[in-house]
């Protein structure tokens, strides 16, 4: 299956794709568990979505419709670059509409429009290990996962509350998947965390540089860590989107002048456009 570019369909050779698919299957079978895989060098830099790209390349077929977002928007530079990469190497149809897409590759957001069964959400993950800042050693963190030895994670949350009166983590907020594995949801805002829980879509996570793949299968329990008396809560804004008036979406702050003027607009550009109307 070679395209006009001289590279194989979706860039990766079929053997590599099979290896990645095996890793994905294992990840789906053990929700939240980080599966090591033979991550390949991609023509895009590490840290720029190579994990997500390899996952997408391994699951995409010629009939798929791909949407790529970065910060919720289809027009950010890296989203453009990745969308083009697949348009060029796989020749697949691309879209900006969440509802039309069969695969959505994302960096830092989950779309506001609810996902449905059959859709795949592919997250780009910079650092997959939730225990990394507490324990730098891979050999030790793997042991901690194996033993579900997660007390130290709550130590961090305890410290936040002791110091700030609240849990001071606003993105990449750790979750427990299927009552077993502690997982980093990638740097999505904690606003998006509840969307992961019991989501009908398949959620796949790819970390290229760190060579790990993990997954949340459809309809899986995803719980954000908290204390009974300091429950998890998401961000809220006093404002609405200045463009579409949405009061239920994640808002980006836009500086409009140098005198302190600012407005808030939807971070999810497709959601915003859809509300404004065609």
């Amino acid at each position: 299956m070679t395209t006009a570019t001289g590279y194989n369909f979706a860039y990766l050779d079929e053997q590599t794709k099979r290896m990645i698919r095996r890793a994905i299957l294992k990840a789906v079978a053990i929700p939240g568990y980080q599966v090591p895989f033979g991550s390949r060098e991609m023509p895009l830099p590490y840290g720029w979505g190579t994990g997500g790209i390899q996952v997408t390349a391994s699951v995409i077929g010629s009939a798929d419709v791909l949407k790529v977002i970065d910060q919720g928007a289809d027009d950010t530079t890296n989203a453009v670059s990745i969308r083009r990469f697949f348009a060029r190497t796989a020749g697949v149809a691309t879209t900006r509409r969440t509802t039309e897409a069969t695969i959505i590759q994302t960096r830092h957001r989950i779309p506001e429009t609810p996902l449905r069964e059959g859709q795949i959400l592919v997250y780009q993950v910079p650092i997959p290990e939730p225990l990394r800042w507490l324990e730098p050693r891979e050999s030790e963190t793997r042991k901690m996962h194996a033993l579900a030895d997660y007390g130290v994670m709550h130590v961090k949350l305890y410290e936040d509350i002791a110091r700030h009166g609240r849990i001071a983590t606003s993105y990449d907020y750790p979750v427990l998947v299927n009552d077993r594995y502690l997982m980093r949801p990638s740097p999505i805002p904690k606003f998006d965390n509840p969307k992961m829980h019991m989501n009908p879509a398949l959620q796949l996570f790819g970390a290229g540089r760190e060579k790990r793949i993990y997954a949340v299968p459809p309809y899986t329990k995803v719980v954000s860590l908290d204390f009974e008396d300091h429950p998890f809560e998401v961000q809220r804004w006093d404002d609405c989107c200045a463009l579409c008036g949405a009061a239920d979406s994640y808002l980006d702050e836009v500086i409009t002048d140098d005198r302190g003027g600012r407005i808030f607009v939807c971070s999810d550009s497709d959601y915003c456009t859809g509300r404004i109307g065609p």
Binding site: G151, V152, H154, V155, Y158, I161, F227, E228, D229
Partner: peptide
Amino acid sequence: RLMAVGRRNY
């Protein structure tokens, strides 16, 4: 150690 054995009330 309390959190490690599952205590979750701050």
